[in-house]
Simulated assay, not measured.
Amino acid sequence: MGRFTLVVFGVVTLLATPFMRYGAHTAHCANPTASTSLCVVYPTLALWYWPVALVAGYAAISLYALRRSRAIGVSTRIAGYVAAGVLVGLLGTAWAA
């Protein structure tokens, strides 16, 4: 199961490339002192992509884990892991926004 998880997160990361590269970029600049300037540039589309992609990735991994455990004949509780993944995605989005 470890390989499938890594493949899912690898695919999610690779699919983020167009959003990071070709999406609109927003800049926020501040002048902490008179002689320096601090600018933060972030891609706007990536802020929408990552929460959706992470939740979809966690859903795919949880479905795979359920199917795999049923095929083996073992019971698996994954609701806590899925809830934690969704919560991390939502908190990361709230922090970035």
Score class of each variant (00 low, 15 high):
Ala94Gln: 03
Val82Thr: 08
Gly10Thr: 07
Trp50Leu: 06
Ala24Arg: 15
Ala83Glu: 07
Val52Ser: 05
Arg21Ile: 15
Thr17Asn: 08
Val74Trp: 01
Tyr42Glu: 05
Leu45Ser: 04
Thr44Asn: 14
Ala53Cys: 09
Ala84Ser: 12
Ala16Val: 15
Gly92Ala: 08
Gly73Val: 01
Ala16Arg: 14
Ala96Cys: 01
His25Tyr: 14
Val55Pro: 13
Leu63Ser: 12
Ile78Pro: 08
Ala59Ser: 13
Cys29Tyr: 03
Ala53Val: 08
Ala46Arg: 02
Val12Ser: 07
Pro51Arg: 00
Thr26Ser: 05
Gly10Val: 07
Ala59Cys: 13
Val7Gln: 12
Ala96Ile: 00
Trp95Cys: 08
Ile61Phe: 08
Gly23His: 09
Trp50Asp: 06
Phe19Asp: 00
Ala30Ser: 11
Ala53Met: 08
Gly2Ser: 15
Gly73Ile: 00
Leu54Ile: 08
Leu54Gly: 08
Ala56Trp: 11
Leu91Gly: 02
Ala56Thr: 13
Ile78His: 07
Leu66Tyr: 14
Ser35Asp: 05
Pro18Phe: 05
Leu15Phe: 11
Gly10Gln: 07
Phe19Glu: 01
Leu91Ser: 03
Pro43Val: 00
Tyr22Ala: 05
Val55Leu: 13
Tyr49Gly: 00
Pro51Glu: 00
Gly80Asp: 01
Val52Glu: 09
Tyr49Leu: 00
Ala60Asp: 05
Gly80Cys: 00
Ser62Tyr: 09
Ala46Asp: 04
Ser35Trp: 05
Val12Leu: 09
Ala60Trp: 04
Gly89Ala: 08
Val74His: 02
Ala27Trp: 11
Val41Glu: 08
Tyr49Ser: 00
His25Arg: 13
Leu63Arg: 10
Ala79Trp: 14
Ile72Asn: 02
Tyr49His: 00
Trp48Glu: 13
Leu54Met: 10
Trp48Arg: 12
Thr44Ile: 14
Ala97Gly: 15
Pro32Gly: 03
Met1Ser: 07
Leu91Ala: 04
Leu66His: 14
Ala34Ser: 01
Tyr42Ser: 06
Gly80Lys: 00
Cys29Lys: 02
Ile78Tyr: 10
Val40Leu: 05
Gly80Pro: 00
Leu66Gly: 14
Ala97Leu: 15
Ser35Ala: 05
Trp95Lys: 14
Leu45Met: 03
Met1Arg: 06
Met20Ala: 12
Ala27Cys: 10
Ile61Glu: 05
Leu66Asn: 13
Val11Lys: 11
Leu63Met: 11
